[in-house]
Each structure stands twice: as C-alpha cells, then as structure tokens.
Design a protein around this nucleic acid. Structure first.
Lengths: 153, 153
DNA sequence: TATTGTTATACTCTATAACTATA
DNA sequence: TATAGTTATAGAGTATAACAATA
C-alpha cells in the first residue's frame, strides 16, 4: 500500500463518507482525470477538449451551443475552448447557413488524426485503470453510470 | 427528455466518448457534485469540507496531513480548508503533543451536529440520485468504484 | 421576444515551489 | 536530512449577468 497517495493509511477511517456513492464517484473520476494528462502527454488535449473533438467528429456541422449542451458545458465556457481547438487547427468554425447567429463546427484532417491518436492513447489508459474489472464488470459500470447521468438536473 | 441539460439531444452522438468509462465517471460524478450544494443549502458545507469533517470525526486527533492524504487533498490546499472549518467552529485545531510540528484535529459539538445534519441531507440526496438502482446495484457500483480508486498513482 | 455567441468576472479545486519550525 | 504546516501563485473547471447580432 502506498501511503503517499489516496490509499487509506492503516487504521484511518473515512467515517460516513466511505458509504457514499458520491464520494467514490468523485475519487474514481479523479483517478481517470489525473491519469489523462499522462496518457495524452505531448498532444495538448485535455479531457474537455477531447470530448468536444469527439462530439464534433460524430456530428459534423453541429453548433457550438448544441455541442456544449451534449457535453454539459455552458455556453460562455465553450467560447475559449472552441477557440483553442480552432487555433490548434483541429476544428473548423464557420457561420451556419441556416442560422447566421450560430457556428457550424467540423473536424479538420489534423483533428481527425489527433482524435484517432487520442482514442488509441485513451484505450490504453482505460485498459490500465480498469485492469481489475472484467468485460462484464466494465459493461455494468458504464450502465450504472449512465443511469445516474440520466438524473442530471 | 430535457434538452436544456446534459441529456443527449435527439440525433446527437457522443462519438467514441460514449464508450469511455472515464467520461461517464466524470459526468456521473458531476451529477452528484452539482446536486450537493442544493442538498446542503444553508449549511455552507461543500463536498470537500464535509469529507474532512467526516474523516476528523472518525479519527479524533488526526493530523492535517494525514486527513489530507486520506482524502487525496494536498497539504497546501488543506490549510485554508481547515481554516474554514475552524473559523466556522466545526473543528478544533491544537498542537499535537507527540509532534509539535503537527496539529491534532478534533470535531467540536457544533461540528458533530453539522455532520449529523449533513449525513441526513446527503442520504436523501443519494436516495434521489440513485433511485433507479436497487440495493444490489448500489453495492456493485461502490465496489467497482473502490477497485478503480485502488489504481490511484 | 428568444436564441447564439460573446465578454467580463468570480469562485472552487488543484498543483508546484519555496519558506519555517520542528523532528 | 526529512516532515508538518504555511505562503504565494497559477491553471483549470465551472457559474452568472449583461451585451450584440440574428431569428
């Protein structure tokens, strides 16, 4: 047991916290979040940016607002995130023809490459962090998490 | 389906993201994190502060550093958090007798009351967010999450 | 009037380096 | 020399209010 990390030190109890799903979700999510930069080292892609890239790739021409709503990112916060991806040459932003208030987002060739590379890295990172769960347990986990996500607001 | 929240709008796909445990952990954890302030409204207790209170209550005399390690909070970040709890009269901080570098933290009577009240509120909030999971599924969820937590660093 | 994107802003959480006092 | 707590600081993520352009 590693006493320098989040492992519980011998004899130290979490108290009521240890029974709470919310606490364990936060810690388990943190494990993935902390490892993500390592998995993506050198690419400049953070969790949020990869998420946007994935949604734009899967829905060519999607608006900034719709992409944000899909990912639970508020409109004001999307602005600089999209700027980052456009500046990095990973997505294209042009005025939507049907609604000149909106932007139509599409992935660029460089974006597709970055996405493919990212997916490969993330598969490895997930394999590593989920190594103690068999295929059935992984499916169960995602199923349970989706049912919690459905409770959003 | 509520189109204003994180629900997926009809016809919009997450792309590769939808298969990733890391993504669903982040979103599910967010559901709990967003609801927490509502559940705790008026108490001033945030997720982190409740966590510290729980650990201090369960381990009277624990040091600031040990509490932080248990919760995955770095030493520098513990300082102001402990200050908040001391200022709110919820925990007591005094120099440890065995090691005068360290603080021994204990919960106050007001802290015990706040913790008990918080636990009640959080039980309701967890019941609500986990309403679609039966007792067996809730146990499975926490078990799977703990096995992911064990992968920390 | 409502919606898309924008700006400005603020708060929380997290992370690192350098300091002090004790061990 | 190492550890406990501290200070200063910076980067992300997230939240709200108010605005311009368009619908």
């Amino acid at each position: 047991m590693n006493l320098e990390t989040g492992d519980q030190e011998a004899g130290i109890s979490l108290g009521p916290l240890g029974d709470l799903a919310g606490y364990h979700l936060r810690r388990a999510s943190g494990v993935f979040g902390n490892d993500f930069p390592r998995a993506m080292a050198g690419t400049g892609l953070r969790q949020v940016l990869f998420g946007i890239l994935s949604v734009v790739a899967a829905n060519p021409g999607i608006s900034q607002g719709a992409a944000g709503r899909t990912l639970g990112i508020q409109r004001p916060n999307m602005v600089s995130l999209i700027n980052e991806l456009v500046d990095a040459g990973l997505i294209d932003r042009r005025t939507a023809q049907e609604d000149r208030r909106a932007f139509a987002l599409t992935i660029t060739d460089a974006g597709s490459d970055a996405l493919a590379d990212g997916i490969e890295r993330i598969r490895e990172h997930e394999q590593r962090l989920l190594a103690d769960l068999d295929a059935d347990e992984r499916r169960t986990l995602i199923d349970l998490l989706k049912r919690i996500e459905a409770k959003e607001d």
